[in-house]
Design a protein around this nucleic acid. Structure first.
Lengths: 213, 213, 213, 213
DNA sequence: GATGAATGAGACTTCATTCAT
DNA sequence: AATGAATGAAGTCTCATTCAT
């Protein structure tokens, strides 16, 4: 008795025999959607195109997602969950600030490679733009926390004002993302590496001397 | 005399100013297009909408622009010319670096208020994205020049490496633009002011002490 | 023993009552279909909706009915059989004309409450419209018979011509049905009562003085 | 100078030169729509079908009508206006009741020949059903007025109660319409004639002896 | 040159029916 | 026999572009 038959057996109580909603298919749709939305934006992306890329019928898409909008939102949400999860894990670690920041940067840039096309997709529609802005604010706040002691004092030395510190973080996050989202696919890994190195270097030259490798 | 000839005759009276009328109409279209593309992005903007906003017939639009894409490109180009013009003027001025930077920032933020919606429009389409990236690179290079002496040495003190300096400028430009392009119209002037102040403060706290008012 | 054989084995226990279960399921589908077709008409009614209302899977529906059209026809037929049965019973009763007519009216209006929504469903489709017309003709003929002696002479006094009598019955039947089929669900019982009372009164004022309560 | 050129000339003030919305085309669409809605009901009727029947492109239909619903409503409205107009004219005539009723009947049956298919169309959708019911109520009230003196007393003798009189009119109107709406096109003129004669006869046998020819 | 009605391709979505399980 | 996911044809509507006037 293999795993599949076990699944069917486990379901028999409620559902005698039938084909089940295929989690793998759902996932395939999400991936295709992520690519498509990223490549063309929300408007230009067609359901037909996603369906073709996934290898399923157009109609089937609507078994898994209510409509194009929901599909988009799910794509965004999936990524966001991933991000939040990783962030959480790093945050609660008990390590030196330099190490945590380094890990955080690693994690973010790795994720960026996966999601980068979607940034564009989120950008296209007014209502989704707000969504994106919200998420980015959350990220910025997380980073601020990373650099702040429980008592509110900044962890890293540096005589800059709170406003300037916030501004720097903000501009950094938005700037890197924008830069990446504008990058052509073929240049992506180069640009991401350059940015990452430059960021590390910049940090080590100013607030976090210990971070450079 | 049939009705056609009557019409033609009626136009001959205005022939003298025809060229001028045309330019004015072209300009009106460009303005309406800039607003529309900015407000809704390239896809969602309709030719019909632009025509209505301009008070010109749909068909007439095609007398002045080959198609929707070209109209968009012209809109971008017009803004770019304005920007380049202003930049040039500031560059060749013979003034202290702090003053020039302050002027430059003023000029840019003023322009941003006008063009900000268009950033989104440029972002939407893959081919226009590259356009945007190109322009932004040019801007960054200009700023770098602003901070560099003819002999290549940096004007402002600061022990940071060249790479870090470039990176900082890059991130600053992209970050501010992205931040603004994500801002809702009703928050725009507030956000722009905040960003501008924060930028001045940050500069005065690091490389350009004299810039703060 | 694979999963299929398990299932088959599981069903053998119920084999004895299988036929009965089937009939009951069929009947449940018919009821749900009657409601649905009535509420929304043939086109707007969906197989999925009927299935959901019945608690039976969509696919199963096709075990009992060839397709949507046949399902509709069966619904109509079921009602028609009920109607014919009741009519028959009243016809062969040996009672005064006034009493029989009163009973007939009671029976019809009671039935109308159940089936009224379906009238619309029958109306929607060209091919079913003829069906409806046929049935209504039959009803009219039955009523004519109710008022006619075996020798062909009219039971109730009244000097009207045969044509006028037929016309009156026709118009009465079609008129009442149309009126009811146009009534909103929430007004239904009120309207049905009003119509019934008015009909009784009208009859008692003209051809059947004895019928009024 | 023919009529067309006059029209163009008359328009020149506002609209230089251009194709105008074609009233004749609009009318053709309405006619095709009336037939289609009547033949198949609202749901089954397709925009594509109407377009094809009219010989124009599908998209053009949307230049003249906002959507399918509005097209339907306009069809109904056009007929209703015709009806109201004719009714009004007969109402204000100063003639004997028998003559007016005869005229009214002539007018209605003539109109029915034109509109009969639409009755079905109105019937299909819940929201349009109410529309239909409303209009029919109005018609009934008009007929009641036709048979009533300004002081409220009934014009025609007949000892029936007010309720019965109202009921009779109601049933008559609804009944005749329903009967006709169920009639196949090929039988239409026969059935309409039969109904008209039967109605005249019935009236002459009861309340309006003078009406029969 | 100007106009805007006409066009038709194509987008999203629904749904009766099929069929693997 | 039962299930419900899968299918794809078809429906409504939008919109960039054309072209008769």
């Amino acid at each position: 008795m293999n795993e599949r038959s076990f699944i069917y057996w486990g379901m028999q109580k409620e559902n005698a025999v039938a084909r089940k909603l295929d989690e793998e298919k759902r996932s395939r749709i999400l991936t295709a959607a992520r690519d498509a939305f990223g490549a063309e934006g929300f408007q230009k992306t067609t359901i037909k195109g996603i369906a073709r890329a996934t290898g399923i019928a157009q109609g089937t898409l609507y078994t898994y997602f209510r409509n194009k909008e929901q599909l988009f939102d799910e794509v965004v949400d999936e990524i966001w969950q991933t991000f939040r999860g990783g962030l959480e894990k790093i945050s609660i670690e008990n390590a030196a600030i330099a190490e945590k920041v380094a890990k955080f940067i690693d994690f973010c840039f790795d994720l960026l490679i996966q999601i980068h096309p979607l940034l564009r997709g989120m950008y296209t529609e007014a209502n989704r733009r707000e969504l994106l802005d919200d998420k980015l604010s959350v990220i910025c706040r997380h980073i601020e926390e990373l650099f702040t002691r429980p008592d509110g004092s900044p962890i890293v030395y540096g005589e800059r004002s709170v406003e300037t510190r916030k501004f720097n973080i903000n501009v950094m996050v938005y700037g890197i993302l924008f830069r990446i989202s504008l990058t052509k696919p073929e240049d992506l890994s180069t640009v991401i590496n350059e940015l990452k190195n430059a960021l590390m270097q910049a940090l080590s030259e100013s607030v976090l001397p210990g971070i450079a490798p």
